[in-house]
C-alpha cells in the first residue's frame, strides 16, 4: 500500500487524481479526494443481523466507523483476513466508511477525455454507480462514483434501509 504515497502523478490542468484498487480480476478507480487513509484490517466489532459484507465497526481515533467488505458485497476474490488485507477509509462528506478490497494499486491522473462512457457490461457493480472506463497504460480501470455507491440503499449503510438477513 505504500507505493500509493510514492507515486505522485503530475496533475495538469483539468486532470483529476484517482486511486485504483483491485477487486477480483477487475481494476477500479475512485476519486482520491474521497480517500481519507489506507490501513490494515484490524479489530472489527461485529454487528448482529446485518448482511455478511458489513463486517462491523471500528474505532477510527474515537469515531465509530462501519466497515464494508467489497469482496463479499460483489462476490469477487477471496474474503481472507490477514496482515495483507487492506482497508480504504473513505470520507464521503458527512460520513466515514471503511472499505475492504483485494489490493490498492496506484494513484493515477486522468484527463476527463480519458474517461469514456461505459457500455452495458458484466462488471460486478451495477452500471448506475459507474462513471466510465479509463485506460491506464494497457490496463482498463472502472471509474466508480464511490459516494453514490456507498450512500445507496443497496449498501445498507444509511438509515431507512432495513438490512434483511
Amino acid at each position: 500500500m505504500s507505493e500509493v504515497a510514492e507515486e505522485h502523478a503530475l496533475v495538469m490542468a483539468g486532470h483529476q487524481e484517482f486511486l485504483t484498487f483491485t477487486l477480483g480480476e477487475e481494476e477500479y478507480a475512485i476519486d482520491i479526494l474521497k480517500v481519507q487513509e489506507i490501513r490494515g484490517y484490524d479489530a472489527v466489532t461485529r454487528i448482529a443481523n446485518t448482511p455478511d459484507y458489513i463486517k462491523g465497526v471500528i474505532n477510527m481515533r474515537g469515531v465509530i466507523v462501519p466497515v464494508v467488505d467489497m469482496r463479499l458485497k460483489f462476490h469477487v476474490g477471496q474474503a481472507v483476513y490477514d496482515q495483507f488485507t487492506v482497508m480504504i477509509i473513505l470520507n464521503l462528506g458527512e460520513r466515514v466508511v471503511g472499505m475492504v478490497v483485494d489490493g490498492v494499486s496506484d494513484v493515477v491522473a486522468l484527463a476527463p477525455e480519458q474517461i469514456r462512457p461505459a457500455p452495458e457490461f458484466g462488471a460486478a457493480m451495477d452500471t448506475q454507480y459507474i462513471q466510465g472506463l479509463a485506460s491506464i497504460d494497457k490496463r482498463m480501470a472502472i471509474v466508480v462514483d464511490i459516494e453514490k455507491l456507498m450512500t445507496s440503499s443497496e449498501m445498507g449503510l444509511v438509515d431507512r434501509v432495513v438490512a434483511g438477513n
Binding site: T45, A48, V57, V63, I64, V96, L157, D159, R160
Partner: peptide, 22 residues
Amino acid sequence: LEAHYRKVQGVSGATIMGDGRV
C-alpha cells in the same frame, strides 16, 4: 453509531474499550 452508520436494533450506541476495540 448513527453518525457514520445507522441505527442498529437492540443496540443504543457504542463505546471504545481499553484495548481500542468498539
